[in-house]
Design a protein around this nucleic acid. Structure first.
Lengths: 199, 199
DNA sequence: GCAAGGATTGAACCATCATTCAATCCTTGG
DNA sequence: CCAAGGATTGAATGATGGTTCAATCCTTGC
């Protein structure tokens, strides 16, 4: 027994794995999911095609993880921004501003995460992403209802519908490349009405 | 010149074409877009694989037309139901009821039309579908704003966001197979709030 | 330095379908 | 009935791109 994987090797392995994920994310942000062949990801990561399969059993598994990582980052950013606010109305305004601001900052990535046609197995990960947003929003809605700031409603349904509204309202601007400056305030107004925020 | 296509032949051709579209729709409704190989469509239509290409230059063109046909049917049904109502509030309630009712009636088809991963060229057709709904709704919203039933708002944005909300709220139930009986009334309540319908 | 065995390579492999096309069948006008 | 030529067939073709694997390289402990 002359070889057993040691810390140094393990570190290199996990660095490779990380580079592959970062490379995949980078290509997604630049060329969308469509540009993400395994060969392209491998080349950008500086490894051979076959090495990708040391770390991920299939391409779908790799991209499930990529989606998970990227999505988590988005949800975290939105949650962080919303947590600075106190009322449900302000929290939701922060959600919209952060979500749209980040999406417009990286439109290609946002489009890939939200709407680009992808492998069905990866698409499933999108549901998780959207549900994470919905959970976040549902929390704010429930608190708002409990405190009397918002009228009685099913927080889950409201949150799900709002996620859909937000995503749909962004797809147009993302395709166009920019959103008119009035889009985001108008969207916030819409969402405030939908929540039943009293004017 | 001993052969020139005659009426009878033209009729047979267009019947074939129609059968192909119907077959494609049927398979979509039963097995989703994923089950729609050209060979499967051809077999169901009772023609050879190659004959499909007498009528459509590519598979994407075939399915663009299939999506267009199916979508138009949906939009028409919704428009017909909404046209029976007079206030924006009632019109939107009719939109939601018709849309969700039909979706839950043919969940597989609804999922394919709304959210299933498809060829990018076909996906583009979905945008048209969603925009058609948005236009329809925008008309009702604009009328409601003009009559003073609804508060001032950008009808296009409201309509787009509502389409997103509606679609998103249906994806869960479509995946689960059924919607709880309270889902639709709750969705109507949400949409009424979002429109600013006074209670 | 060396043998053991894991890590890495990248060209070959292969599965999946969309698409094509040579052969065949049918329809038409004479 | 015939010849012309379009319609139809379905097996072969081909493109794509994920996946594999024999060969090679590296690392480890002695």
């Amino acid at each position: 027994m002359a070889y057993r994987s040691t810390e140094r090797v393990k570190a290199r392995l996990s660095a490779s794995r990380e580079r592959i994920i970062v490379a995949a994310l980078g290509i997604m942000a630049e060329h969308g999911y469509a540009g993400c062949s395994v060969a392209a990801v491998a080349e950008r990561a500086g490894v051979a095609t076959g090495s990708v399969y040391r770390h991920f059993p299939t391409k779908a598994d790799l991209f499930a993880e990529v989606f998970r990582t990227a999505s988590q980052r988005e949800v975290d950013a939105v949650a962080r921004a919303a947590a600075l606010e106190t009322s449900a109305a302000e929290q939701m305004a922060a959600v919209v501003e952060t979500f749209s601001g980040r999406a417009l900052q990286s439109p290609r990535l946002a489009y890939a995460l939200l709407a680009e046609p992808v492998d069905p197995a990866v698409d499933a990960e999108r549901l998780v992403f959207r549900r994470a947003y919905a959970e976040l929003i549902a929390g704010y809605v429930a608190a708002g209802v409990a405190s009397g700031e918002l009228p009685p409603q099913d927080p889950e349904l409201t949150a799900t519908a709002l996620v859909g509204a937000l995503a749909e309202a962004m797809v147009g601007p993302l395709a166009a490349g920019v959103a008119g400056p009035e889009t985001i305030p108008a969207l916030i107004a819409f969402i405030h009405r939908a929540l039943g925020v009293s004017p």
